[in-house]
Structures are given as C-alpha cells and as structure tokens.
Design a protein around this nucleic acid. Structure first.
Lengths: 244, 244
DNA sequence: CCAATAACAAGAGCACTGCTCTTGATTTTG
DNA sequence: CAAAATCAAGAGCAGTGCTCTTGTTATTGG
C-alpha cells in the first residue's frame, strides 16, 4: 500500500502534511489553545472549508499532532538509549541518559509537551490511535531496567501482599521477564519522572529550584535506586541526621 | 476594611461571588476550555458586557478560580494533616494521609486539578496572586518532615556537592530548621507526588494500573522513605533478586 | 436637600472561531 | 467517453471575547 496511485493521492498526502506542518508551527508559537483551523487555512492560502476534507474536525487535527508529539519524545528517548547502550554505559547512566533526553525534549517543545502530558484538551478519553505512541517512553525505561536485571540483577524490596496480583499482571503485560517486584516501582518512577518534568516545564519550580540540571540529575538518580538499579553501590542509608 | 459601606458594595461582592459560583459550576461540568463568559452571564440573567465590571477579562476570572482551587486542595491537605496530628499518627502515616487527601481532592475535582496542575491555560507566567495559595500543599509536606526531624531525625543520604548551595538556599527560604540534605528530596517528592496524581487523573494509568489505591499507597510510602521518614524501619534493601 | 459624580446594566457591534451546506470544477473510474 | 467520486471555494450559522455607547441608578459634596 506504499505506492501512490495518482496525482490526486500524491497531492492529498502532500496537503495533509502541509496542514500538519503549519499546525505544528502555530502550536509551537502559541500553544494548543490558540491553534485555529482558519488561521492554518489562511496561512496555506486555502479556504477554511477545504481543510475539512483532510481533517474532519479540529480535534482530529490535534490528535494527529498528539501522536506526532508522542512519537517525537519517544524517538528522543530511544535514541538516547541506543547511544548509551553503544557506549556500554552503566545501567544507571543509561537511565539518566534516557530521562535527560525526555526532559530536554520537553524543555525544547513545551507546547507539545503540554499537549500530551498536560490537561487533556479535546475530550476526556484518549483516542485509540494515541495509546501505542504514548507508551514508547515507558517501554524504553522498562528496557533499561530489564537489561540491568539480566546482567546485574535488581535491588528491590519485597513485594507488598496486596499488590501481588497487580504486579504479576503488569510484568506479564508490559515487561515479560522482569520480576514482579520491579513492576510497581517502575510504573511509579515513570509517572514521577513526568512529575519532575511537568513542574519544571509548567513553571512550578519558579523561584524554588534554580540549578535545575543538577536537581534533575539528583532526582532521577534517586529514581534509579527505587527501580532497583544502583543496588550494589555505596551505603544507601547512612546514619540519620539526628534531630535536635 | 471588613465593613460593607452600602447597598452598592454589598451587591458588588454578592454578584462577584455569584459569577464565580456559576463559573465554577461550568468548570466542573465541562472543563476550563468550555468556560464561557457569555454562558455565565446568560445563566445569571445579565448581559455579557455587564460581567466585565467584575472581571476585566476571561483570564482574570480563570485566575480567580485557580486561586480558589489552590486554596481548596491546600485546605484539604491541611485538614488531613491536622487530623493525623490529632490522632498522634506516625510521621509516615501523616505523610500518607496528606498525600491521600491531595489525591482524593484531585479525583473529586478533575477539572479544577487540571486547571492548576495541568497545562497553564491563560498565558505563560502564573499571576502573582497564585503563588501564595499554590505553595500550601508543599508547606504541609514540609511540616510533616519537619515534625519528623524534630522528634525522630531523618534518614537521608549525604548531600551532593553541586547541590550544597542550592540546598542551603532552599531550607533557608522554605523550610527553616530542616537540614540541607532534606531540601532536594523534599522538592522532588513534592513534584513526583503530582506526577503520580496527574497520571491517574489524566488517564495515563488506563489499562496500566488497576488497583490504584494500593498502588498509590505503595508509591507514596516509598516517597516517604526518600524524604527521610521510615529510616528506622525494616531493612531498606534486601539482597537483590539476582539476575539469570 | 439637591445637584455632581461615580458605578452600573444593557445593547449594538467588531473580529474572531468551528463547522455545515451548496455550488462548481477536476480527476479517477467503469 | 460518460458516470462517479473527489475536491476547492463561498456563504452562512451559531458561538466566542471584548469594546463602545447610551441610559439608569446609587453615592457623595456643597
């Protein structure tokens, strides 16, 4: 189905791409709220009504941009993982490299980030087409931990009883081969990573965190510990700083 | 300045409250994107132009709702803290109670939550009026850890060198009396808490996490560990689950 | 007490928006 | 080559935020 049948079909995918490109430009410049179908059409020199032949509604256009954004950040994470693996970096270093790549993508594309990890703009339920691309970053994080498990094992606390079934299901579904203890810490770290990034991108760290690079590195290193990496490192908990 | 001068002033605060109430109703029902000044005016039986005597723009109305939302979730967190303290709960139990209260508020008010912890809707920078209410939840978390520090001390890893100055500034500014090692773990846990909640509220856990209560409890217990609570508990890191 | 002043409500109107329907031109297909 | 599908464009609808103008109240100073 990769052959283009005629001039019409060729023009169609070309115009579709042009619409998405212009929409991305407006998204980058002004954010999702200000994205206007009429403005896109105006910039492309066509009637606004003609645009509905390519995207049946504004929400459908936004969904296409959402998928592209998920793919973009997923690609960044995967690229960082590839290079870290090629450099034979430690598993913690790979974890940090991947999370750093996600953070840097978010800072470079704040509006796209807000589109996919901020408030869901169109309706409530994410369209089916987004769930695949949406999981790419999570899969990379799983891969890092799975690699570490295979070579060094993981340092993890025992599994809570009431999460046994949940954890078994999770590893069976998303991370075959990982021990069940790794499941909930991994999912938690995944969401917490985006908590760190969201607070930075959305300005919640304004006048709170200044050296954000160092702060982030420290936070994700701790996150690496909670998913079982860094188990054989230095003593985790030195004698507590005693109270008064 | 609490005395109401005349019928005019009394009517003014009454109408202002009515506008905010109706706006909150629409926000709750449809979300921030669908909130319409004209619809609010229509529902209140007044002309849309009359509304501009009370709020100079739609964004100003939204800002008022943002402040109220921050106050609402802050109040929930503070109430949970008060009752946990009154019951002489352990510090970890207090931590869990506060985080649970925030989560439950978020699940009960998803649109308000999205308004304050999702993508920033109006412009880019948060108005000055929001920074005070916005910090209330964070202050409660700090209070929990500060109490624990005073009575039991905290179990924290040593401070990284490149975060020394940052940590000193943080504790001086937001958490006087806390040791500098507590600063960055606390800020990180604060943002990560909202990562957990955002993923649940925004549907990212759909078909990933099923038993969300148990998962959340486990995740915030781990978060309690990273901020230094639970230091004297069971062994943190048992022998790793060895790899193949 | 009454006029000057300020605050108010309402209406009309502007420039937008998403979206639909109809009309006419173009391309693909039987 | 004719029939059918696809496309572009215009007009139009209902809705939005916001402004300006015109009256109408309530508060205030002389």
């Amino acid at each position: 189905m990769s052959t283009v049948r005629g001039a019409r079909e060729r023009a169609r995918i070309e115009v579709t791409a042009a619409i998405k490109d212009e929409a991305k430009k407006q998204l980058m410049a002004e954010g999702a709220a200000k994205l206007s179908l009429r403005a896109v059409a105006r910039e492309l020199g066509m009637a606004s009504s003609a645009l509905y032949r390519y995207f049946p509604s504004r929400d459908e256009l936004l969904t296409a941009l959402i998928v592209d954004a998920y793919d973009s950040v997923g690609e960044s994470a995967e690229a960082a993982h590839r290079t870290a693996r090629a450099e034979a970096a430690t598993h913690v270093a790979r974890w940090i490299a991947v999370t750093r790549a996600v953070r840097e993508w978010a800072l470079a594309h704040p509006h796209e980030y807000a589109l996919i990890y901020g408030s869901p703009v169109p309706g409530y339920t994410a369209p089916q087409a987004t769930i695949g691309p949406a999981s790419r970053v999570g899969l990379v994080l799983i891969a890092v931990v799975a690699d570490a498990y295979r070579t060094d094992g993981l340092a993890l606390p025992p599994l809570a009883d009431d999460l046994r079934a949940e954890a078994d299901r999770m590893v069976a579904e998303f991370a075959p081969g990982l021990p069940p203890q790794a499941a909930t810490p991994l999912i938690a770290a995944w969401s917490q990573l985006f908590g760190l990034i969201s607070f930075e991108v959305f300005g919640q760290f304004h006048r709170v965190v200044e050296d954000r690079e160092a702060f982030f590195r420290e936070a994700v290193t701790e996150l690496a510990r909670t998913v079982g990496l860094l188990g054989g490192g230095a003593a985790r908990r030195p004698a507590g700083t005693a109270g008064p």
